[in-house]
């Protein structure tokens, strides 16, 4: 469904991505892992067209999207739930959800997706008139995921949804991801939480300083000595 072919990205003189390749098939949950500064967020931003691609190509359903602008990629169904939630702080929860469905194709399915979001996160329904900035971290993350779902994604990319949240909330969010994946949504999950992510993913990629280092089946990676050594401190 989505394929990155050897992408290179610079910030000024600094090479941040040095040939990342990855592929996500329809219906999968793929985990993209790596430590701080590895280039995970930059990869996501590049898929969204927020950075300048120096080399390589990005294919969506076989078609190159590297020359499309960000909003055109969103209209194709490529949607991100950004790192650190990034809700519109002065808008209500409800308006944040509406803005998520700004694209014409998402607007057409607004009512249906709104029902889905409130069913997945009943808390958001209770809080719908509250300003986004006044909610707790966990509620904000739920709102950010719901806002992304309102964009009617074909592939949903989540950048560190567990960041700064208590284990119970993280568990709930991961359960929700599995649930929406079962409904047919393809997911790219960017995480530092290696164990929990590989538990729900079918495959995983580990990147380090802008390069692929390990990839494979999630179950195999969970038991791989290399992964354990490098990331689980065992």
């Amino acid at each position: 469904m989505l394929k990155l072919e050897n992408i290179h990205v610079n910030y000024g003189q600094f090479e941040v991505l040095r040939g990342i390749s990855l592929e996500i098939h329809e219906g999968e949950i793929v985990a993209l892992l790596g430590s701080n500064g590895a280039g995970k967020s930059t990869t996501i931003n590049t898929i969204m067209g927020l950075t300048q691609l120096r080399e390589g190509d990005i294919l969506f359903n076989g078609e190159s999207i590297k020359d499309l602008r960000t909003h055109e990629r969103v209209q194709k169904g490529i949607v991100v739930c950004p790192e650190g939630r990034k809700l519109f702080p002065h808008m209500s929860v409800y308006d944040n959800l509406l803005i998520g469905s700004y694209s014409p194709h998402a607007r057409a399915k607004r009512a249906e997706n709104l029902d889905l979001c409130f069913q997945l996160f009943p808390k958001l329904y209770e809080r719908r008139n509250q300003a986004a900035r006044t909610m707790s971290g966990g509620e904000q993350q739920m709102c950010a995921i719901a806002r992304a779902l309102m964009s009617d994604p074909k592939i949903l990319m989540l950048d560190e949804p567990s960041l700064g949240l208590a284990p119970v909330i993280v568990q709930k969010i991961f359960d929700t991801l599995v649930e929406i994946n079962k409904k047919g949504l393809t997911i790219l999950l960017v995480e530092q939480n290696v164990m929990a992510s590989l538990e729900i993913a079918s495959r995983g990629y580990i990147i380090e300083t802008g390069e692929n280092i390990i990839n494979g089946e999630a179950q195999e990676m969970l038991h791989s000595e290399d992964v354990k050594k490098a990331y689980l401190g065992i």
Binding site: V74, Q75, V79, V80, K86, H90, M91, I99, Y102, S103
Partner: peptide, 12 residues
């Protein structure tokens, strides 16, 4: 409020 995130919402 945030022009980059606005673009991620599909806003031109």
């Amino acid at each position: 409020q945030n022009r980059t995130v606005a673009r991620l919402m599909g806003i031109h």
